Amino acid sequence: TFTSIVTTNPDFGGFEFYVEAGQQFDDSAYEEAYGVSVPSAVVEEMNAKAAQLKDGEWLNVSHE
């Protein structure tokens, strides 16, 4: 299960995956970082959410 939350205070020191406002979700980078295949429906969902981000916001993507 993939989830996401919007934050204005990303923790770059941890093992977190963020999408910056104005960027798209990079499923290849996510797969490389976590060894998890990302279904195309999830990629579309995360890109739709990322498109709604305002300046200074980040989308924190995770999975269980």
Rank of each mutant, 00 (worst) to 15 (best):
A50Y: 01
V38Q: 00
F2G: 00
V19N: 01
N9Q: 12
Q24T: 12
T8H: 08
A50K: 00
F12D: 04
A48M: 13
A50E: 03
D26K: 06
A48G: 09
S37I: 12
F15H: 14
V43P: 00
S40T: 12
T8V: 09
D11T: 12
Y34C: 08
V61Y: 00
N60L: 15
E64G: 12
Y18D: 01
S37T: 14
E57C: 07
A41Y: 14
Y34H: 08
H63Q: 04
V38D: 04
F25D: 01
D26W: 06
E64P: 08
S28D: 09
G56K: 04
P10Q: 04
F17W: 09
V38W: 00
Y34S: 05
D55I: 13
W58L: 00
F2R: 00
F15S: 15
Y18R: 04
F12Q: 06
N60G: 14
Y30S: 01
Y30A: 00
S28I: 14
D26C: 07
E64K: 14
E31F: 15
A50S: 06
T7Q: 04
K49M: 14
Y34W: 08
T8S: 10
N47G: 03
A21E: 04
V19Q: 00
V36A: 04
T8C: 10
K49P: 08
I5S: 13
E32W: 11
E20V: 06
V6C: 08
A48H: 11
F15L: 12
N60I: 15
Q23P: 01
A41E: 13
S62Q: 10
D27N: 14
F2I: 05
L53M: 06
N60T: 12
E64S: 14
E64I: 14
A48I: 13
G14E: 08
L59A: 01
E45T: 06
Q24M: 15
Y30C: 04
A51C: 08
F2L: 04
E31C: 10
F15N: 15
D55V: 14
D26H: 05
V38T: 03
N9W: 08
F17G: 01
L59E: 01
L59C: 01
V43I: 12
S28N: 13
V42E: 04
V61C: 04
Q52P: 00
G22N: 06
S62I: 13
Q24R: 13
V6Y: 03
E57G: 02
H63P: 01
Q24N: 11
T3L: 11
Y30G: 02
S62Y: 13
T1E: 09
E20W: 13
V42I: 11
V43C: 07
A50I: 08
K54H: 09
N9C: 14
L59H: 02
L59D: 02
A33H: 12
T3Y: 14
E31L: 11
E64L: 14
A50D: 07
G13Q: 10
V43Q: 06
T3H: 14
E16P: 06
P10L: 03
Y18S: 03
T1V: 13
L53D: 04
K54W: 04
Y18P: 02
G56F: 04
F15E: 11
D27G: 15
G13K: 10
K54D: 05
A29N: 03
A33L: 15
F17R: 00
S40H: 13
D11L: 11
D55R: 12
S62L: 10
G13A: 11
E20F: 08
T1Q: 12
T8P: 06
W58F: 09
E45P: 00
S4C: 13
A33D: 04
P10E: 02
Y30K: 01
W58M: 10
G56R: 04
L53I: 02
F15D: 13
A51K: 08
A29P: 00
A50F: 00
V42W: 06
P10Y: 01
Y34T: 09
K49A: 14
A48Q: 13
L59M: 06
F2M: 02
D11C: 14
T7G: 01
F15C: 15
E16I: 09
V61F: 02
Q24F: 12
K49E: 09
T1W: 12
N60D: 03
D55Y: 12
D26V: 05
E16A: 13
Y30I: 01
V36P: 03
Q24C: 11
S28Q: 14
N60H: 15
L59G: 02
V6T: 07
Q24I: 11
Q23V: 06
V43M: 06
F17N: 01
E31R: 12
Y30Q: 01
N47V: 04
M46C: 07
Y34K: 08
E20N: 07
F17S: 02
A29H: 06
